[in-house]
Write a protein that binds this DNA or RNA. Structure first.
Lengths: 220, 220
DNA sequence: TTTTAATGTTACAAAATTGTAAGATTAGAT
DNA sequence: ATCTAATCTTACAATTTTGTAACATTAAAA
């Protein structure tokens, strides 16, 4: 999706992108921008930051409250301030006018690559040492071995992975696994951690989840 | 992790990063780089591409076969060729020497942000229109409503999300759900899609998965 | 060293998930 | 308009997942 007030540039961009097999939409209704974006849910947005009737920075900030759609900021001035601002406002990349079309295409490709993670193979993986954890399938892979995790095991493992090398309290895990509303036995957590540990052990990762008595667990 | 041959720059970088609350490791054994990286499994790598005894590009390419650890390339020459190459080799970003420390920090922050997606809240979400799909918990959220998906439903939904707006064949989904080795009824897929559809309907997303008879499904 | 509270393990039953089958519905071809 | 193969729905039984309870083990304090 192209968000740009100068029609000439818009059309140029659209032509460039379509020649490179990207489907493009041009934002028309600037007043209703946020809704148009969310309805169209494009894979990527090219957003001009210097437009006379709309504040690109504010639009990006508002968009970020609701969505992670990748945004490449197009800035007119190549100043460090602008560069810094774009990124801190939540842009995934920025490019300065006048831009080289090939570099723009490369940036678009790179942003799409890292945001969709792996568009073609549908892999969304976390890595831990030499082990890969497929978030979608809930499968741990190491060398040729695959282990299936249940949903609770997935939740615990990914929580620990996302908070590696720090102590994760039992309470944190409890609230991550269950709504505070529903009562569950304290021991349910212990049992689930135990089950996860024995699966990790099957692929050679013994003693990676350490117990800190009275404090919680730590994955190291 | 800093991979850089000039000791002076290394130490400068380490000081800068540590002053900003990043834990840093400096790669020592360049011959055994790949193993050192995998063992340390850093959150991010700063990789100098122009080192005398080691080929940074080749290292990155080899690393990418095994890992998605984010890499920021440090290049000496600000040429378009280099920029293009870094990204195509699998770097997440690049910066040219001499760099402004503040810009480097911003870039590091930005890369970490988008790769870890949301480090602190442990959220790993895909977005579809006004709906969010929590990959870890297998929960769909919209407004205040939450719907739990089963593992098969998660696999189908995330596959469709990752391949939005194109036809996904039944066969693709079959091989994503089950190993070709195990025999399952063709209808098992239909039933699972049906179950997913009825859950989506519960939160107001009726008719979003369209059937293209003889071809497959499309999420639009 | 002893005590004790915290954590771990195992077995089991309730609950949830999943593939199958049988019959219903549908879209597109004739 | 009719036919037909593709897709859908529902119910059901097999399998898997999960919380509980009962007992075992452990680490840290006394």
């Amino acid at each position: 999706m192209i968000i740009e007030d100068e029609e000439l540039i818009c059309n140029e961009l659209a032509k460039l992108l379509e020649n490179n097999n990207y489907e493009t939409i041009i934002l028309k209704d600037f007043k209703n921008a946020l809704n148009e974006i969310l309805d169209a849910s494009p894979d990527l947005i090219l957003l001009d930051i210097n437009m006379p009737f709309i504040n690109g920075e504010a639009l990006l900030q508002n968009l970020r409250k609701q969505s992670n759609i990748p945004v490449i900021m197009v800035t007119s001035i190549n100043s460090e301030t602008d560069e810094a601002l774009s990124i801190s406002y939540g842009a995934d990349d920025y490019i300065t006018k006048p831009y080289n079309p090939n570099i723009l295409l490369l940036r678009i490709g790179a942003v799409l690559k890292r945001t969709k993670i792996n568009y073609n193979t549908n892999v969304n993986e976390l890595t831990y040492k030499k082990l890969k954890f497929d978030l979608q399938k809930g499968i741990i892979k190491k060398d040729n071995i695959e282990i299936e995790l249940t949903k609770n095991e997935m939740i615990i493992f990914s929580y620990l992975l996302n908070h590696q090398n720090r102590i994760v309290t039992r309470e944190e895990l409890m609230t991550t696994l269950w709504d505070n509303s529903e009562y569950v036995n304290e021991n349910a957590l212990t049992v689930n951690v135990s089950r996860l540990r024995s699966k990790l052990k099957e692929i050679g990762y013994e003693d990676v989840i350490d117990t800190r008595k009275g404090l919680g667990y730590i994955l190291s």
